[in-house]
Structures are given as structure tokens and as C-alpha cells.
Design a binder for these strands. Sequence first.
DNA 1: CGTCGGGTTGATAACTTTCAAATTTCGTGG
DNA 2: CCACGAAATTTGAAAGTTATCAACCCGACG
Lengths: 219, 219
Amino acid sequence: MLSALHKRRRTFPAGSDLVYQGQVERSAYILVRGWVSSYKLLPRGTRQIVDFQIPGDFLGLRSILFRTADHSIEPVTSIEAIEVLASDLIDAFRESPRVATAVLWAASRDEAMGVEHLIDLGRRDALQRTAHFLLELGARLKLVGLGTVAGYACPLSQYHLADALGLSAVHVNRVLRQLREEGLLTFRSGRVIFDNFDGLVTLAEFDVSYLDQSGPLLK
Amino acid sequence: MLSALHKRRRTFPAGSDLVYQGQVERSAYILVRGWVSSYKLLPRGTRQIVDFQIPGDFLGLRSILFRTADHSIEPVTSIEAIEVLASDLIDAFRESPRVATAVLWAASRDEAMGVEHLIDLGRRDALQRTAHFLLELGARLKLVGLGTVAGYACPLSQYHLADALGLSAVHVNRVLRQLREEGLLTFRSGRVIFDNFDGLVTLAEFDVSYLDQSGPLLK
DNA sequence: CGTCGGGTTGATAACTTTCAAATTTCGTGG
DNA sequence: CCACGAAATTTGAAAGTTATCAACCCGACG
């Protein structure tokens, strides 16, 4: 049923907007290749990146269910994505409760990651926060075969990290230096290298259980 | 169909745990009376409150869909709630796509609020953050008839606010004093009073559109 | 070549936490 | 109804973390 939805495959260059804040037209995507950021712009010119999406992730679900997109979606790299029409998705919910349950599970998983992000910003200092965030990205990438315990390819700039972590770009730079100098992690030239994975996990108090790799409860 | 789920009505005193971190048994609730906090405890003894639930809100949805509850739920006040069994809810999804879509809509609305909370922690200073958070609670309470533009009854302690806002309780106290001295808001003896609603909205850059009062798209 | 985005570093300022202590509020038992 | 103790609130001072401002460096690209 999902594959019936796979109608339009589209490519977007880095920087183009898939969904912009306030947009009314509704469609969603499944990301096939590349990275995307979901963010919200604030009146004073700053922005908060809510999450990054990696291949396999669903984009813009909320823009289907809400009448108005409440945040913007922008490719970090050039990407390839499959467009899913709102009407088709809603029909699929009607015809197959299993699909609806699966999508709900995915939404819940996203929310669990959102909670960890919230904790990053609320109760972890810059060092822990950065370590935790990069570890989580690693865990997600590993699930889709794009990362290992050694590291992963990461197209983000330090500005991206700053806007995701609620820090200034300058401070992100200092934190990355500290992580590097302590032999924990190297963030350089498009790669994240875990120099000391266990040390990082300890520092970040990282616990993968919230990612719940067991999948949706369909039976 | 939802009313068929309304089987067990239960009362919990303030402080008892409805769902605790790591719990395996699965059940969810619809809150009828009182306030509840969803939070996560961190290794170093601190905690982050993810959200407060008010009457009409769904509790513990995630603990149904995931095998393990990834956070704890604790009443702020004595509460009354209707227990919903996981199996019943999942059956309801099967039998009625409309129910599934509605629950998905509710989950998306919660996520939209989560995004604003994330922005509070990531990109707003303590004053803006506190104002924004209390305004959002007011907007939610107004929807269920428990608040007006004048204010609302609020059972939270300054510690609750601190753990929700990612601040120390001491600093919350100072921020509340500043809001009071600037004639914007009074937080005292279980009430939030908007002394200058428009001024608060301006300060907090508050925009209600993300609450999307139009409801789920069922047609 | 020259420009530009990204990265790096130092100095200073702003914000928030921590620690410590006083004061007030509130529920409970006498 | 009052006294008491616990919890919540309030305030001050000092310390710590992060932002801001201002340069400078570097490699990619037209």
C-alpha cells in the first residue's frame, strides 16, 4: 500500500525550500538521499533547528495534518525525495489501519527524539549537549546503514549545529575543539569520527533505548 | 467508539506515579480533572519536564506505542482520569480509521507544542521563555474553558516551572519578580494573572497559530 | 586573483547558576 | 484556633557558562 504512494520522485538542490513557514498547500515526502533540516525562524532573525532528517525519514507529516505548515523544511545537501499527496495518505489511513498505526508509531518515535532534544537544550551543558546530539545522529544513521561506531559522513556546518543546539556558532567551535582535544570526537571536513565512543557515551549519558528499535506494535 | 473506551475512571493523589520511566505495562489515560506533568529524570538528579497536561489531554500515548515508557508521568494535583487499555485503543484504530486519524492529529498538535517548547529552551532568554510558556498554558486552558485573557488557576510551583523551562528555581523566582515589576504578569498563590496581556504577547513574540484550533482533517 | 562562506581565536560582556540564609506560606496535630 | 514543622518563596553575593564583538585564516570557485 505504501509503495502505491510512491508516485513522484523529485530532486531538490541544497537550500531550496520544500515547505516554508505559513505555506498552505499540503504535501509530504519520504527522503531517499541527502539530509534535510526542519527549522523555525524567529522574529529577531535567529532560528531554531528542530530536527534533521536523514534517508528513510518522513518529511512534512505535520504540514499534512495541520492546515498550515508551522515550520520550514530545507535541504542541507542536494536531496532526492518521494512526494506523498495528503489525500493519498489520508485514504491509506482509511483503508488500512495498519498503515495508520505504523505512521503513528513513526510519529511517536520522532517525538521521543524530540524529547531528548528538549533535554539537550534544557538540562545539558554545551559539551554534553553536543556529544549527545552527535551520538544520536550516529545511532539513527547506523539504523539505515549510513554509519558505524567509528563515525559517519556529516554534511552539517558548525552553523547548523549551533542552530540545532541553541548555541552560538562561536561556542560550537570551542566545544568541538574541546571534544577533539579530549580525544573523544573529531568533527572535520564533512565527517564525524568517534575517537572514543565509550567515553562519549559516558560523557553524554547517552541511552539508545528511547529509539526503540523493535518497531510498531501491529499485532 | 471513543466512549466505549471510557471504562475505568480512576483518581490519583498528587505525587503518585501513573507511568514511571522504564515501566513495561502499557496503558494510557484521558485526563478529566487536575494537572499532570510528563518528565524525564536525568542521571545527575536533575529533571526536565517535557509538558504539562490539562483536562481533556491524552496521557501516556507513547507508553502504548513503545514497549517501554520513556518518561514518567506524575500528577501535579490530585487528578481524575479515565484509563484506556492499549489493546482497546489499537482495536479502535483497526475498526475506525477516523479514530486513528484523530489521534494522529492530536499527536501532531502535541508535537507542535513541543516545537515551541524547544524554541523556548533553545532561542529565548529566561524572561521571554517564561512569558511564552505561561501564555501557551493560558491559551490551552482557554480552549477547555479553564482560563481567560485575565488569567487562570495554576497549581504549579516555581520548581515545576524551573524544571519545565530549563532554569534554576532561584532564577525563575527572579524572572517572575521582573515580570511582576514590569506590570506584565503576576504569578502568586496558585494563579496566573495577566496584568498586561498585549505587552506579554509582544515580549514573548507569542503566536497562537501553531495551536491550530480548527481540528483534525476528517473529511 | 578576489571574494565569500566557513572555520578559528581572543577579549569582554551578559546571563544564569550555585551557595547560603532569611522569610513566608500552608497543612497538620494538639 | 493555635503552634509547629515542612515546603515554597525570596534575596544577596560570588562563580561559571555562554554570547557577542572583532579579527584573522583558509580553501573553493568564478
